[in-house]
Simulated assay, not measured.
Amino acid sequence: MTIPKNTVCLWFDGTALEAAQFYAATFADSAVGAVQLAPADYPSGRQGDVLTVCFTVLGMACLGLNGGPVFPQTEAFSFQVATDDQAETDRLWQAIVDNGGQASACGWCKDRWGVSWQITPRALTEALADPDRAAARRAFEAMMQMGKIDIAAIDAARRG
């Protein structure tokens, strides 16, 4: 087993394998790798319980640690996923929200494990970087009114 130089470690309360399997089924270039069982009892589990799960999300190396309820997920960490079109934006947003997740504002949502996701169409990123600062402002103001990002509405706002 090759261990990556840098890995994102996500803390779960006993559900790391379930989360990794969902991510692998939902996102391209994602997979579940090694599952390590606890060699002895620990504060939040027993010998033989799933302790860690190696997985990738969109090619990014991650480790799910079943550390217990002490450190819940917060919006201070999120995955930002650049989508190519409205269909991809809708599919990923719905996969997260419709499977026990929660919608939020400006393209953010949270999965059922509390991990935050920014489902961000490339069209939004381009609109916010528009050298015409008035167009960028209109796109930004439109985004601020949205939950899931509506690319057509962003494009319309950008055009004025």
Rank of each mutant, 00 (worst) to 15 (best):
S30Q: 05
A31H: 10
D130T: 07
D29T: 13
F79P: 01
A38G: 07
D155T: 01
G107Q: 01
L17M: 09
T56Y: 12
R133Y: 12
I149T: 02
T7S: 03
V53K: 03
S116F: 05
C109W: 06
A38L: 10
P4N: 08
L128G: 00
G48V: 14
W117T: 09
E18L: 04
F140R: 15
W117M: 07
T7V: 13
E141A: 05
Q80T: 14
A38Q: 10
G67E: 01
L37G: 10
V115W: 01
Q73E: 12
P72G: 13
G48R: 03
L63P: 04
A152F: 00
G100K: 02
S116I: 00
Q80N: 10
G14P: 01
Q94N: 14
T83Y: 08
F22M: 08
G107M: 01
V57E: 01
Q80R: 10
L63D: 05
G101P: 08
M146P: 02
A142P: 03
Q80S: 14
G14S: 02
C54N: 14
K110C: 09
D98A: 13
A105V: 12
S44K: 10
A87Y: 11
T74E: 07
V97I: 07
V53W: 01
L65G: 03
I151C: 03
I119R: 09
L58K: 11
A136R: 05
A135K: 15
V32L: 09
V115E: 06
P72L: 13
N6S: 15
A134G: 02
I149S: 02
K110M: 15
Q102L: 06
S44W: 08
L10I: 08
G64C: 06
A82M: 15
T2I: 09
Q21C: 08
M60A: 15
G147Q: 14
K5E: 15
A123F: 00
D155A: 08
Q47R: 15
W113L: 03
G101E: 11
L58Y: 07
P72H: 13
A19R: 07
A127D: 00
A61Y: 11
A25H: 03
Q145C: 10
N6A: 15
E75G: 15
S116N: 05
V35E: 04
D84I: 10
F77E: 14
K5Y: 12
T56V: 09
Q145E: 08
L92G: 07
C54R: 12
A135M: 12
F77S: 14
A87G: 13
C109F: 06
D13I: 09
G45K: 11
R46L: 03
T83V: 09
L58P: 04
G147P: 05
A16D: 01
T7E: 07
L124S: 02
N6L: 13
E75Q: 15
A157T: 02
Q145F: 04
P131F: 12
P131G: 11
E141Y: 04
A20T: 01
Y42R: 05
I149A: 01
Q94D: 15
G114M: 06
A95T: 06
R91T: 12
